[in-house]
Design a protein around this nucleic acid. Structure first.
Length: 198
DNA sequence: TGCCTGATTGCCT
DNA sequence: GGCAATCAGGCAA
């Protein structure tokens, strides 16, 4: 369905605004021959060199290279030596801003998600940035891929059933798990959702 | 080269 | 609530 596709230019907006706009969008992985889908309910904005909590704060390295790429591509990185996190690159090339996807509402392919996670409780499938990468089958191979078209893809909020809120009500608050710039309200989540992390 | 820290999770008491 | 697992980057020596 072409109507499920994000409009060209969707990613062309300030990072904080993109982080809010991504709430409600669907993340789809059709890579393994089976489809898994989750709706984004929680995000965090990470800004450029001026944001001490951002990986881009100290410039380009081998690990964060894709964070400086084109808006709408993926930045996938390994944290704590064992967990992968998925970001949507934001801003013009070379700026180094991104939106961390922190939690999804499972929509489709819950059985496969459960297999990958080794858990069956639906609230344990995607309720954290590293949980959802496992459930969605995100790997380091996805680092740098275009998220507007491909086997790992973002779709509009109207995809995969009813999204009945024209303007989803959002909360904002401090980002989680960081020590620097911990006071900035750059975390966004869907009000009343039971699918957010924590 | 060596040591410390980190955008986390799950299992332990 | 505490804590281990496990590795890439940053920084000091």
């Amino acid at each position: 369905m072409s109507s499920d596709r994000l409009e060209p230019g969707f990613f062309l907006r300030p990072t904080e605004e993109l982080a809010r706009s991504l709430i409600g969008c669907c993340l789809v992985n059709e890579g393994a021959g089976k489809r898994v889908v989750g709706r984004i309910v929680e995000t965090e904005a990470y800004l450029g060199r001026d944001d001490p909590a951002s990986h881009s704060h100290r410039g380009v390295t081998k690990r964060n290279r894709s964070m400086f790429g084109t808006q709408g591509t993926a930045y996938v990185y390994l944290i704590y030596g064992m967990h992968l996190c998925l970001n949507v690159v934001s801003g013009p090339e070379g700026v180094g801003e991104a939106v961390l996807i922190r939690a999804l509402e499972p929509i489709e392919g819950l059985e496969l998600m459960g297999e990958r996670r080794g858990r069956t409780e639906v609230h344990e499938l995607c309720s954290g940035p590293a949980k959802l990468t496992v459930a969605m089958g995100v790997t380091r191979e996805h680092d740098g891929v275009d998220l507007s078209a491909g086997d790992l893809e973002l779709r509009s909020p109207t995809s995969f059933g009813v999204w009945d809120e024209d303007r989803p009500r959002l909360h904002e608050g401090p980002r989680i798990g960081i020590t620097k710039a911990a006071d900035l309200p750059l975390r966004y989540w869907l009000e009343g959702s039971s699918w957010v992390s924590r």
